[in-house]
């Protein structure tokens, strides 16, 4: 299960990040660490990217990145 499988308003806990080193490091710095809770807020009007909430702030990420973030 990844972030994109959540419904708007639902939350999950990060298990791991299966992404390229560069993107992974960027997300880690922003607080998307294993164990952190993320909420799926909404999808952008054209279907991509998506808005998630982590550690109390909003972040826009592309679906393909969100698919690399697996949840517990």
């Amino acid at each position: 299960m990844t972030i994109v499988d959540l419904k708007p308003g639902q939350s999950g806990q990060i298990l791991e990040l299966n992404l390229s080193t560069k993107i992974k490091n960027k997300l880690l710095e922003l607080g998307l660490t294993p164990g952190a809770s993320v909420m799926f807020v909404r999808t952008a009007p054209l279907g991509d990217p998506i808005n998630i909430k982590v550690r109390g702030f909003n972040l826009g990420i592309r679906r393909e990145i969100a698919q690399g973030i697996t949840l517990k």
Binding site: K26, L27, P49, N51, F57, N58, L59, I61, R62, I65
Partner: peptide
């Protein structure tokens, strides 16, 4: 290309 962007208050 990629997209990671904070949506600030």
């Amino acid at each position: 290309s990629d997209f990671i962007l904070e949506l600030p208050p």
